[in-house]
Nucleic acid binder design. Structure first.
Lengths: 270, 270
DNA sequence: CAATCATGTGACATATTGTGGGAATTAAAT
DNA sequence: ATTTAATTCCCACAATATGTCACATGATTG
């Protein structure tokens, strides 16, 4: 192929990506008879305009389907979420009825429960419902209504009324923020309004909150420490939070990352 | 297989996991002509993003659990279902409100609607809800309640009452059997009891039924031809069925397989 | 002619890969 | 059940490959 100017080359690259999903930088440099650095600059330009995706070794077509933000969040901090899920799963016994809140942490917990039999799961999360249906031998009760596009869950009055009909053995909630003084908080008003009534009928409340939640402070209080029997997290919380939990009798389950140290297990304070 | 760079290799591994649930490290190293350690590192990357599960000796798809029967059915007769979905999608306009019944045909339709904006989807199917949440710019109203393990959808009174609150532009139903004399039938009593009331408030009823449904005859009548404005199917139905449809003014949309003949399109009788 | 832009080159930073040693896991044998 | 052997895994290091940046050159444009 002969020398093309930049515009023609960019267009040609896009054309080539129709044929093959991935092109190595060296391939393109060779084909257009320019230096690899030029191709890399082209790649940077195209990536800036979101048309392609730069990868190590070359460029690839952007996935034509924009992934929903929820599903991106689901894949962030996977290791920590999996550890928390394992820790929380240890609280579950066969035959139990669980109320599983929406949120990616609860979603990972649902996945960790795959092997358990004879569970009844009540949830308002479409993602968790979808997950549970992949687990044979688990009953699913789904709260419906208008579905929130951000959280992929129903928070409306239908969902609220539905969930209040049950008295689950464990009420498992995720929280957006944990504050030593104000307890557990949320940013979303609908979400908070959905969770709050669940506390009244709850026998045992388990909250999942990774360490990033200790640095935040939402603006709607959902629960105090006294409402929560178990708090599962991935890193030791600040001393003030540990103390607040201790004073209210909230058990703290820290599932730390312990590479090469498999017998240490979880640190359960109180 | 030739040497691939990391990105291409990761994608290829995910592709391979579609074929076989478990791949040994040695197998993959062999296939990609890289060292086993490289494969292990790939595995670590993929596990970090939660896409696969690392096992001793190899990697496996996260869901090494038995795939739910629904999800197996979803992958059967894909070509026919996709054609029917395309045909049905042609009836949908932006801004519409759709009631989408459960069933794999409707599920494929939901997928075909991915590119459309500003749709409002009412459904009782967890699978369809999950699909819709992957389509940006579509509103989702989910009917809840106890979820049927076979159909992955809610058929209970909560779901029924919820759906009856809406007057959708299109009411799209799948049916288990089509009989020239008795109309549209079902095998499942709960499912039938859910669908029947939807017909009353429906403005326009679209039924999806592939050709296998013409050979069956369920035992619960859900609708007569007079209730149904459009019938989408993949092959020309028996003459008696065509006549029954014609007499009741039911439009017949046959999305036949027309390889290399893209302008023939659908056969619309009446 | 000055200013801007595209390109190539080389120096340096970052990422990926293979190798070998030692820990961990599994399988086999006692 | 306990020990032994084989396999597999993880880590650290070195080599290679790739990416980024800064600067110089030549082309293009106003």
């Amino acid at each position: 192929m002969k020398q093309l100017n930049q515009g023609a080359r960019l267009a040609a690259i896009l054309q080539l990506l129709e044929e093959k999903a991935f092109w190595a930088v060296s391939e393109l440099a060779d084909r257009f008879e320019v230096s690899e650095e030029t191709i890399r600059r082209d790649a940077r330009h195209l990536e800036q305009s979101g048309v392609i995706q730069k990868m190590h070794g070359g460029i690839s077509a952007t996935s034509n389907k924009i992934e929903a933000p929820y599903r991106i969040r689901f894949r962030e901090n996977v290791a920590a979420k999996q550890r928390m899920a394992q820790t929380a799963a240890a609280l579950v016994r066969e035959g139990m009825t669980l109320l599983l809140d929406s949120g990616t942490s609860c979603h990972w917990l649902a996945r960790s429960l795959a092997h358990m039999q004879n569970l009844t799961i009540v949830t308002n999360s479409v993602e968790i419902a979808h997950e549970i249906l992949g687990n044979p031998g688990q009953r699913l009760l789904l709260a419906g209504g208008p579905v929130n596009q951000i959280h992929h869950a129903a928070f409306g009055p239908e969902a609220s009324a539905f969930c209040r009909r049950f008295a689950p053995d464990l009420t498992i909630l995720s929280m957006s923020a944990v504050d030593p003084e104000r307890g557990f908080l949320d940013f979303d008003a609908d979400e908070a309004a959905f969770k709050q009534p669940l506390l009244e009928r709850a026998r045992r409340v388990v909250v999942l909150a990774d360490h990033t939640k200790f640095a935040k402070s939402g603006f709607i209080q959902v629960a105090s420490f006294a409402d929560v029997q178990d708090l599962v997290t991935d890193l030791e919380p600040p001393a003030s939070t540990v103390q607040a939990a201790s004073l209210s009798g909230t058990r703290l389950h820290v599932s730390e990352d312990t590479p090469g140290d498999h017998h240490k297990g979880n640190v359960d304070l109180v």
